[in-house]
Design a protein around this nucleic acid. Structure first.
Lengths: 215, 215
DNA sequence: TAGATTGTTAATCGATTAACAATC
DNA sequence: TAGATTGTTAATCGATTAACAATC
């Protein structure tokens, strides 16, 4: 088992990755932690500390090679691989995700959708078919699915999460407004739109009372 | 200016609110921090510390009155009010948000959408019309808009954010994959789907190497 | 070589947890 | 009254920032 990294560090990696991508697009080949810190509005110390959790990617007196660092973070995040995804709940959010081609471009391939609604079953969105949820277990057992996306009402989400875990699914992207309890070898990443909206509401009403808003 | 609260605390409030709502639905009228801590998988200390940032809502020897605390958090979050929202970018995500009726139920009322695409302009989704983005400024100046939702590609998002800030908009719910620079009286809450997906990818590849995954 | 900038250790800061007097 | 549980202070823990020797 590798060194444990705090989730705070992990969650900053995609942001580093994005800024490095922008630098690459602009033809910038090297960057110092100081320069990057100004652009990203964080401390140079934090950048160096964060990166040194994973390796020594810089060079004294020079800084970091942008392309090299970009590729390293890509590998660290595991986004140099391909993933097969299945969406459960073919409603608005589910459909929006399938239609968002950026995920496909980045190697996150949707291969099927499932729903209970007979009016949706059989439809095809961007070439992805919507299947009857009753066929889910069969599908998961006969296909190589890395991630299940849950975009369904919260009571169903809990039920379905148990089923997919039994089928051996190890990654869940959860859009349902509920906390899923999972064994330690099953990871969950939550998108709670309602919570985010409420946080925005608080910020709007208490502009002066927040410490440390994210960038 | 009230006491400053850290964002970590704020972001836990919607979760408390959700659990209290569930308790209410189950007819539970009182709860101790200890009980709640078991359900939520946090420490009782943290619950008491968090709540005491905003007031003394409990009673020694008794605990907290669920309904009272629920209402207090609702007020703290500011979700006892109504908000007018406008969506800019009537693509998949934008449309999904309008179609998601939970927001309307909670007082977040979408009143218009805007897009550049002539094929979308003039369409109506759930009674919400999609207008030409060229009419945005006019609209914002003649309507009472509390929050603008940005669901458009990142280069446009930066441009549009400047325009709406000039029009006096104070709250932005940003789904664009870019960091917006705003003056201190304009608050932003980000939903970065791609970042979230990358975080999930990391978790999937490093199950044993994360400290403290969120609940 | 001199200047720049890293990787890393030490210091600081803030957030979480523990403990307990107050009191319902 | 005795038991339970709060609000709050103190202790601990972890994360961020500062400092600097190493070195490109």
């Amino acid at each position: 088992m590798d060194k444990k990294i705090s989730l705070a560090v992990i969650k900053r990696l995609p942001r580093y990755y994005r800024y490095l991508g922008d630098l690459l697009d602009n033809g910038i080949t090297r960057i110092s932690s100081k320069d990057l810190s100004k652009r990203m509005n964080v401390t140079a110390s934090q950048i160096r500390q964060d990166l040194n959790n994973f390796g020594c990617f810089g060079q004294q007196g020079y800084g970091y090679n942008v392309e090299l660092l970009y590729d390293e973070i890509k590998k660290i995040l595991g986004i140099n691989k391909q993933y097969n995804l299945v969406i459960i709940g073919a409603g608005n959010i589910g459909q929006a995700l399938v239609n968002y081609i950026n995920f496909q471009k980045r190697g996150f391939n949707f291969i099927a959708m499932f729903d209970v609604n007979p009016r949706l079953i059989g439809m095809t969105i961007r070439g992805i078919e919507i299947y009857d949820i009753d066929t889910l277990e069969d599908f998961l057992k006969t296909h190589n699915v890395d991630i299940v996306v849950l975009t369904l009402p919260k009571n169903n989400a809990v039920k379905v999460s148990k089923i997919i875990i039994d089928c051996g699914i190890k990654g869940i992207w959860n859009f349902s407004h509920v906390d899923l309890k999972t064994p330690p070898n099953v990871v969950v990443e939550n998108i709670h739109l309602t919570d985010s909206m409420m946080t925005l509401s608080y910020k709007l009403n208490n502009k002066d009372c927040i410490i440390d808003d994210e960038y």
